[in-house]
Nucleic acid binder design. Structure first.
Length: 815
RNA sequence: GCCGAGAUGGCGGAACUGGGAGACGCGGCGGACUCAAAAUCCGCAGUGCUGAAAGGCGCGUGGGGGUUCAACUCCCCCUCUCGGCACCA
């Protein structure tokens, strides 16, 4: 009797669809929003992609059986560079390529039997979606959170567009097919003011108890809060003062120079018309041309400006340098140089023979400048610091801050590493930025009624030339001003696709609404996401910050009541093949469709689920497939060969010889239930496998045995739903198992009656005794000491003491 | 450099709150069925020494110390792997 997976799977998928089992309840009594991160449509899906969907599906189906009204949607993050690059390569339109990919992938996904509510599918590149992406832009614009500024930005020469900070990894483009070294360019670009939410994004992490710690740590690092103090240095002979940030105000008496970033706008004025001008200009120019990496890798250097600044605590004059180790984007782009207590300043001072002044001593010693090989950066005690001498770092920092504040030359201050999110892109395949430039009125947002600003389809030249291909589309660019009706031009840039993905979870709630991105009552009904199943930790400092940011903005604007999007987050490990991440471009992808065709969706599901715990990386191997296939066949046979004894009632009478089997059944129900709730699907399946082995090995074919098979069928349903429903119907079960309440175990038979108590001597296992029912410590001791092997081992030794762990271990300490 | 996660048989991986390490699977070996093979079913198996065998004794969760009657689990030090951050003042 062979299992015909193709036939069975088709049958049940059709049935689920016909019954509308996965259509979301309009009026949920017990809602559960189960969300799997949506995907980029890159051709067809492979088994590596399937992991996310399968794991999300197991959870969704389990929650359905727990009586929840589950919302389990899917969609496509459909804008983005690969479509455009493909268009350039083979001449097809990005939209065509993308929509075809989506269609193919949808078909494959449906073959997997995932319980999606397909009616809510969202596709971000379609106008009814990106209309609302543009609406989001306008919302941020109105709230002062979207702005345009000229700044040094990350330019990817490969992609011919600017990138957000989050998309630059080690100075390299984040796109795996690009990996070009990022350059700095001064350009006028759109930013979202995520920094305004830095503190709330940071503080909110403390409330996210059910997020993995590593993701929270990564976000904290990314936001990079430091507390310190601002200090104002006046420049001698100029009407300029620098407000510098430091985390170590206690080292203020050790300042011997200042360094200004080469990008700093004040440089011009400092050196104009002086003998330093040429050298400084040249240095600044060269420095700005360098990539971030080049700047990091070279030794610290700089150039004198001939100007001096005044230390506000002691009135000392210190020279001002331009140095490219100073970052223009952090703090004010100016730092005070304290060589004795900062490694970078130390290097710089040694190079230019600047004075090094020790103002902090270690708690238990004394530093001397001559013998110092490195800066002393740890906390210590202030010395040579006027009235502050003798204070330790913590107290000193506080006192100095307060002193500066009192004198109105600085004071306590906080800085974040997080930078504003650069969202404009010089590429075609994205949502157009809904802004119009009027010669008379200036920058004018597109009125909401005019949305969407449609992406023109007649474009044929997608080759990036440093500006958006849209700039060349006259029909698109030329428009009239919504204000005055005069001649005007549209913004030619499109938005970062991370903008599209920052709010997609809201669109699922009301996917067909053409009046709002989502009706308020629907948002209130379904938010927050109860379980977010994330693709991997690479999203920790990108998408997972952005969508928190959007949630907070929409909350502040009164559109949703939550201010964190997701309660639980579960991050999955990737699927590898031959030690590398499975992907089409690496050529190691196992196409899902092909695999399902040959082995079936349930085998694919089982292979994925059993191979490794979901959060860990898993290596795809054919050996895993063999096991899964065997499991399916054995289960199928178990049912077909014993159909007449399968019973859905708990056994009324438990005979002596089937008692242990009944206990095993109940233990399995308990174990599988716990594991389902905590995403330990691999051990849940191991438990099912054990029960199956026990059923195969059972010598009785009574009602306990029959109930065991029944329970197996039940428990299989989240993991291998097609097989489970097929078996369910073959034993006259009604409908689909997703409609059946999850099994409860019989608490009276949850613990094995037969116990083995291990007898140890000095912690080594020497023997064991078997007991059924209760036994007292005295009895155990008596039996243990009477045990032949124990007696032999105790020869010539005396018993010091004994330890008894009830029903488990009896340890004799002897010497 | 800093932060986080991890290292367990030939392999993927189990092990509650400190209580028999190696569940379950793959592969392997032996047996049954078969003319034979596949499939299937049953059994064996961490490793060393010892024993004809049943068994016995030792060693074993990256390495080294420690706490404990008892350590994969707790503490200290070290090595390696993976991920993140890193000129952030």
């Amino acid at each position: 009797m062979q299992l015909d997976h193709n036939k069975i799977e088709k049958k049940w998928q059709d049935y689920w669809k016909k019954r509308g089992l996965f259509q979301t309840a309009e009026d949920p009594k017990k809602k559960f929003y189960n969300l799997v991160m949506f995907a980029y449509p890159s051709g067809d899906i492979h088994v590596g992609h399937c992991k996310n969907y399968v794991i999300g599906d197991v959870y969704a189906r389990y929650m359905m059986r727990r009586g929840y009204d589950v919302l389990h949607p899917f969609g496509w993050d459909a804008f983005g560079l690969p479509a455009e690059n493909q268009a350039i390569k083979i001449g097809t339109h990005p939209e065509k390529w993308t929509l075809e990919n989506i269609q193919t992938s949808d078909e494959s996904l449906k073959l997997l039997g995932i319980s999606y509510d397909w009616d809510r599918e969202v596709i971000t590149c379609l106008p009814d979606y990106y209309k609302w992406t543009q609406w989001m832009f306008l919302l941020l614009y109105k709230r002062g959170l979207a702005y345009k500024k000229e700044a040094y930005v990350n330019w990817c020469p490969g992609c011919q567009t600017v990138l957000a900070n989050e998309q630059v990894i080690d100075g390299i483009c984040y796109r795996s097919n690009c990996r070009a070294t990022i350059e700095k360019r001064k350009l006028n670009q759109w930013f979202f003011k995520i920094t305004e939410y830095a503190e709330r994004l940071l503080a909110g992490l403390d409330e996210l108890d059910a997020w993995p710690e590593n993701v929270k740590v990564m976000q904290r690092n990314w936001i990079g809060k430091s507390t310190g103090c601002d200090i104002v240095f006046k420049v001698v002979g100029h009407d300029i003062s620098f407000r510098v940030f430091t985390t170590r105000p206690d080292t203020i008496f050790g300042v011997t120079f200042m360094s200004v970033a080469p990008e700093h706008p004040a440089i011009d004025e400092l050196v104009k018309g002086t003998s330093f001008e040429t050298a400084v200009r040249r240095y600044a120019q060269e420095a700005t041309k360098k990539t971030e990496r080049e700047r990091i890798e070279k030794t610290k250097d700089g150039v004198a400006t001939g100007c001096y600044a005044i230390n506000p605590v002691n009135g000392e004059k210190v020279p001002i340098f331009v140095a490219d180790y100073v970052l223009p984007e952090y703090g004010s782009g100016v730092v005070m140089g304290v060589p004795a207590h900062d490694a970078r300043d130390f290097q710089f001072a040694r190079k230019y023979d600047l004075p090094i002044r020790v103002v902090i001593n270690p708690p238990d010693g004394q530093l001397s400048v001559d013998s110092m090989k490195d800066a002393y950066e740890d906390p210590g005690v202030m010395v040579d610091s006027g009235e502050f001498t003798g204070l330790d770092t913590a107290a000193g920092a506080k006192k100095v801050s307060a002193f500066l504040a009192r004198k109105n030359v600085g004071g306590p201050s906080v800085n974040y590493r997080l930078k504003d999110w650069l969202i404009s892109r010089q590429r075609y395949w994205g949502a157009p930025i809904p802004i119009i430039y009027c010669q008379k009125c200036g920058m004018v947002p597109v009125p909401e009624n005019d949305l969407p600003v449609l992406l023109p389809k007649q474009v044929t030249d997608f080759v990036p030339k440093g500006r958006s291909p849209l700039a060349a589309v006259e029909d698109f660019i030329n428009t009239t001003c919504p204000n005055c009706g005069g001649k005007a031009e549209r913004d030619a840039d499109t938005m970062d696709t991370f903008v599209c993905s920052s709010w997609y979870f809201l669109r699922y709630l009301d996917a067909h609404n053409d009046k709002e991105f989502c009706a308020r009552d629907k948002a209130d009904r379904w938010l927050p996401i109860d379980q977010y199943i994330g693709g991997g930790s690479e999203h920790a400092t990108g998408h997972l910050i952005y969508f928190r940011f959007f949630t907070k903005v929409l909350h502040d604007a009164g559109f949703i009541s939550v201010d964190e999007p997701a309660v639980h987050l579960f991050n999955l490990g990737m699927v590898l093949k031959n030690g590398e991440v499975m992907s089409k471009s690496k050529g190691n992808a196992v196409p899902a469709r092909q695999f399902i065709d040959k082995h079936g969706a349930d085998v694919a599901r089982l292979t994925i689920l059993f191979a490794a715990p979901p959060e860990r990386e898993m290596e795809w191997s054919d050996e895993g497939v063999t096991g899964a296939e065997r499991f399916m066949q054995r289960m199928y046979r178990l049912v077909t060969e014993n159909r007449e004894v399968i019973k859905e009632e708990r056994p009324s009478r438990i005979s002596k010889e089937s008692e242990e089997l009944y206990i095993k059944i109940n233990q399995t129900i308990a174990k599988v239930t716990i594991d389902l709730e905590s995403f330990k699907y691999n051990t849940a399946i191991a438990a099912l496998w054990e029960l199956m082995n026990a059923l195969y090995g059972s010598s009785v074919r009574d009602e306990v045995f029959g109930y065991g098979i029944y329970a197996m069928i039940h428990m299989l349903s989240p993991f291998v739903p097609h097989l489970a429903d097929e078996l369910w119907s073959s034993v006259d079960g009604e409908g689909s198992l997703v409609e059946q309440t999850w099994l409860e175990y019989d608490i009276r038979y949850a613990e094995s009656k037969a116990k083995i108590i291990v007898i140890q001597i000095n912690g080594r296992v020497r023997s064991h005794i078997e007991v059924t029912g209760g036994i007292s410590e005295e009895e155990v001791k008596e039996k243990a000491l009477g045990d032949e092997r124990i007696v032999r081992h105790l020869e010539g030794k005396s018993i010091r003491k004994t330890i008894y762990v009830p029903d488990k271990i009896f340890n004799i300490v002897a010497a």
